[in-house]
Nucleic acid binder design. Sequence first.
DNA 1: GCGTACATGTAATGTGTTACATGATTGA
DNA 2: TCAATCATGTAACACATTACATGTACGC
Lengths: 181, 181
Amino acid sequence: MALEHAILVSLDERSGSGYELAQRFEKSIGFFWAATHQQIYRTLKRMVELGWVSRHEVAQDGRPDKKVYEVADAGRAELARWLASPSEPETLRHDLSVKIRGASLGDAAALTGEIARHRDLHAERLDVYLAIEKKDFPDPSALSGRRLHQYLVLRGGVRAERALVEWCDEVLAAMREDDRR
Amino acid sequence: MALEHAILVSLDERSGSGYELAQRFEKSIGFFWAATHQQIYRTLKRMVELGWVSRHEVAQDGRPDKKVYEVADAGRAELARWLASPSEPETLRHDLSVKIRGASLGDAAALTGEIARHRDLHAERLDVYLAIEKKDFPDPSALSGRRLHQYLVLRGGVRAERALVEWCDEVLAAMREDDRR
DNA sequence: GCGTACATGTAATGTGTTACATGATTGA
DNA sequence: TCAATCATGTAACACATTACATGTACGC
C-alpha cells in the first residue's frame, strides 16, 4: 500500500518517466523500497486515474517518446495524509534465519558457504553506502531539511548493513567452532 | 516461496496443528518470518497434496478436533534441497524510511512522534529478545547443534532491533536539532 | 451474558513475480 | 552484428491481506 507513496516522494524530488523511476528504484530509493518496472508502470497508471500525478508525453529525437509524470495537488495531499498516519514496522521475512534454524537438517558446509556469501554481499552494500556518505554528505552537522532527511535514511542503511555483516561473522565463527567439536 | 520451508522447520522441531503453527508464527519463528493463520492453512493444504507433510485428525474432549501435521520424508528431502540452494537477501520495504525521505512534504512534528513510537516498539522487542537470551541461553559457549542455531538466529534479532533503536535515536536527535534552527 | 481461547476455513481483493513482446539507437 | 541502453507495456500466475463465517468450552 506504499509503493504509490514511494513514487510520490521520488517524483516530488524530480519529475520523470516510468523508466527513470525504475532506475531510481534500482539504486537510491530502492535501497529501502524495492520495485520492478512492471509494478511501477501499473502503479503509475492507477495514480493517473486517481489524479495523484499528471502525465505529459515528451517527444525525443533518436529515442522513443517518453511519458513524464509529475506530482499533482491531489498527490501532494495524499502524501501529507499518509505521512501523518501511523504505520506498523514491516513484517520480517528473513530467509537466511529460517535456513540457519533448520541447519541440522541439511548440509552444514553448504550453508556456511551461503552465509559467507551473504556476509560479502552485505559488506559490499555497506561499502557503497559509506562511499555515498563520504562523497555526498562530508559535513553532516551542516545539513538541514531535505538533504538531512536523505542523509538520515542513508544512515539507516549503513547501520542495517553493518549489523548484518557483524551477525554473519558471529554465526560463521560459532558454526565453525561447533563443527570442529 | 519459503513459507513452506519455515513450516517444515517448525514442524520438524515439533509436530502440531495449523492453529498451533499460527501461534508459533506469532512468536519464536514469527520473529523472522511472518505469517497469518490463513496463509498457514492454505499452505498446509498444498503441502499435504505435495506429500511433504502427513495429516491425522485427533479427537479432543471439550474442544474441537484438530488436524495434526507431521513432516514426511518428501518434506525432509525438500528441506534439504532448499537449504543447499542459494537465496538472495530479502528486498527491503521500509515504510519509515520512505516517510523520513518525504518529511519536508508533511507535518514534521507528527512524523517525529511516529519515529519515537517506532523507537519504543523496537526497544520493547529488543527487551523481549534479551530476556529470552538470558533465560534460555545463559551459557552460549556450551551450545551446539540445533540449540546453537536457535541462539544464533535470536542473536540476529537482537542485533537488528538494537540497530533500529539506535538509528531512531539518531534520526530523532538530528530532526529535533534541525527544528530548533 | 461477554470475552477469550481453541480450531478451521472461504471469498474477494490487492500486490508481487515471471515471462513474453516490441522496437529504435549507439558503441565495440 | 551483437550487446547494451532507452522506453513501454500485456498476461498469467503466485502470494498476501482483509473481511467474513462457524461453533464449543470456560471463567468472570
